[in-house]
Design a protein around this nucleic acid. Structure first.
Length: 572
RNA sequence: GCCCCCGUAGUUCAAUGGAUAGAACUGCGGACUUCUAAGCCGUCAAUGUUGGUUCGAUUCCAACCGGGGGCACCA
């Protein structure tokens, strides 16, 4: 990265000037008039030495040796040191980007690290909710950003295949047995039926005390596997749900390496609680076994109920131990869930400090906000009730398809369908990834359907537009080249140079929005450039360079989108 | 009651303690019979309140006001 070069230059200049600061602070200035890179190091030094920052900056600048990559170094304002890259350095960076191709943007900051990301976590027998969509978008982006930094990433999905919700669903299934879809029926029909069963079961559970009792008993039957009929419903529902989730993951672009199930980790959780109860980590309280977080400013949590059943606390104990058992070389474990679990995880990690410090030290929880509708309430579906993730995707897809068909593009039916799906996925993922993870998202579906402005489709559109330019160039036999007829770098070229840093920062901060912000600004700069520069013109010598630049922009957009898990389209 | 998170243009979001707080949507006003108008250009408009720390605060600290979430056998 060229910023590393400048950091070195700056550090050695500081040393020569007699300032022993090694922590170099180099950033891209907010406005281009302040150069390509800027350092506030003189301000920091002045703070310590109680002297005039401008004088310090000037002393540092005097010590900067001549270097081909810099055209100018200046002291500005209160004492900033602004670095201006030479045109040659910028062309060289563009050439480096081209050479790296689909590796352009990658870094080494996590090279050799083995990291597990757990996300999505839907529950079989229940709907795939918009919350799962968010968790997936964020988890997938974080996983990919880590991969771009050289980490070996392991994707994990933890699913609740036991528990009350299963009892409710199976109660519904048994009640509606006559309407059960045939084995040959479409998956969508099976899932539709299953969800109706769940809703029926859940409502009956709330409204009818006798049913509540029946479901509680049924739930135990599910667990004990003593009733063949119940067993059959259980395996059908589980199978259908998981197959349906797999289809959603395909659309979303996620491939999991591990599927953990609550049923598989419960036993281990119970054993751990027993073991560490003897050591005083867990204590009996009102018949339950709890961990008391209050001495640490946290709260109490039940791990084993008074009926002797493990809560999700105990299961999480088993889950996290299992992760490190299956992956002994694991250096970091990241868990993505809703932010409502923030404090729960603090308690869990505190308990882990007494059980396995390696786990508590190397596991981080990322809590994301809720997705709300335009009315700031839960996103509701067109059919009433909370919207499922699938419905939301489908609504967006239908709208995208309409828009595609309204155009005069000659896309085949398949391509149109596929493109619409990618636009829908891109739209929803972008909305989730463009803002800070912990905050609630207000998702105005009508606004999202317009696909205008600061949006995923805007980025996809820009890519499609460049593709179109490339084919226009091909049609007239124009070849991209940076060798002849270079033009002085514009803001666009100067912006491209910061791509690697955006990816690095996003990875370090677990904040994909650094990348969304970067690439949407890049797209904006390109579209603006496009409006004022005619690119393909066989008669203009500068066309080769402009085409080259367009290709680098496309490469950067594609790599950025890939690192976020947002699909790109060829045409739209 | 205790704890956690969040308060930035009319709206939805940005901003690694630094320079002139950046976009999008909306509104208003434009350009274009040239490579994709899901585009481009211009314009109006914002840091909840009061203090503190700092050379410098949207960012850190405190209090208050407002919103959301969590605090025992559900996940």
């Amino acid at each position: 990265m060229i910023s590393d070069e400048i950091k070195k230059i700056l550090a050695s200049a500081c040393k020569r000037a007699g300032f022993g600061i090694t922590a170099s602070t180099l950033k891209k200035p907010d406005i281009s008039a302040h150069g390509d890179y800027s350092s506030n190091i003189a301000l920091a030094v002045a703070g310590i030495e109680k002297t005039n920052p401008r004088l310090i900056a000037e002393r540092i600048v005097e010590c900067i040796s001549k270097n081909g990559i810099l055209s100018k170094v200046e002291v500005a304002s209160a004492g900033y040191i602004n670095f201006y890259l030479s045109d040659e350095a910028i062309y060289e960076e563009l050439g480096r980007a081209e050479g790296l191709s689909d590796k352009w943007g990658a870094g080494k900051s996590l090279h050799g690290n083995r990291m597990m990301f757990e996300y999505t976590d839907p529950n079989p027998f229940k709907a795939f909710h918009v919350g799962h969509l968010m968790s997936n978008a964020i988890g997938e982006a974080l996983a990919r950003l880590a991969e771009w930094q050289g980490a070996h990433v392991i994707r994990a999905n933890y699913q609740g295949d036991v528990g009350l919700h299963v009892g409710k669903a199976i109660y519904g299934m048994l009640s509606a047995k006559s309407g059960i879809p045939a084995e040959t029926a479409a998956l969508l029909d099976k899932i539709g039926w299953l969800q109706e069963c769940y809703v029926f079961g859940a409502q009956s559970y709330e409204n009818d005390p006798s049913v509540k009792h029946k479901i509680d008993v049924l739930n135990k039957t599910v667990f004990d596997k003593t009733d063949p009929e119940v067993n059959k419903m259980y395996s059908l529902g589980r199978e259908w749900s998981l197959a349906n989730f797999e289809e959603i993951y395909r659309v979303l672009g996620t491939k999991f390496d591990y599927y953990f199930f609550e049923s598989e980790v419960a036993e281990k959780g119970i054993t751990l609680v027993d073991e560490y109860k003897e050591k005083g980590v867990f204590v009996d309280s009102e018949g339950a076994v709890i961990f008391d977080g209050e001495p640490y400013g946290l709260h109490k949590r039940v791990f084993i109920t008074s009926n002797g059943l493990p809560t999700y606390e105990a299961k999480d104990l088993g889950l996290n131990v299992t992760k490190f058992e299956k992956e002994p070389e694991l250096q970091k474990s990241v868990i993505v869930t809703g932010a409502e679990q923030d404090e729960y995880f603090k308690v869990l990690f505190k308990a882990f400090e007494f059980i396995d410090k390696r786990i508590s030290d190397n596991t981080v929880h990322v809590g994301h906000g809720l997705m709300l509708g335009a009315d700031k309430k839960k996103v509701s579906s067109r059919r009433g009730g909370a919207a499922s993730g699938e419905e939301l995707l489908l609504d967006l897809k239908v709208s995208a398809l309409k828009k595609i068909l309204a155009g005069k593009k000659e896309l085949s039916e398949n391509e149109a369908e596929d493109t619409a799906e990618k636009i829908a996925t891109g739209a929803i993922k972008y909305v989730v990834l463009k803002q800070n993870i912990g905050k609630n998202i207000v998702f105005d579906e009508d606004l999202a359907l317009s696909f205008e402005g600061d949006s995923g489709p805007y980025l996809q559109y820009t890519c499609a537009r460049i593709n179109s330019i490339l084919s226009a160039a091909e049609a007239v036999g124009l070849e991209a080249s940076i060798e002849r007829t270079k033009e002085p770098p514009t803001e666009l070229e100067r912006y491209l140079i910061h791509f690697e840093n955006a990816l690095l920062l996003a990875s370090i901060k677990l904040s994909p929005n650094y990348v969304t912000t970067y690439i949407v600004e890049l797209a904006r700069l390109f579209n603006s450039y496009y409006a004022s520069h005619h690119i393909v013109d066989a008669h203009k010598p500068e066309s080769a360079y402009r085409l080259y630049l367009a290709k680098i922009v496309l490469l950067t957009l594609k790599n950025g989108l890939k690192a976020l898990g947002i699909p790109t389209v060829e045409r739209m």
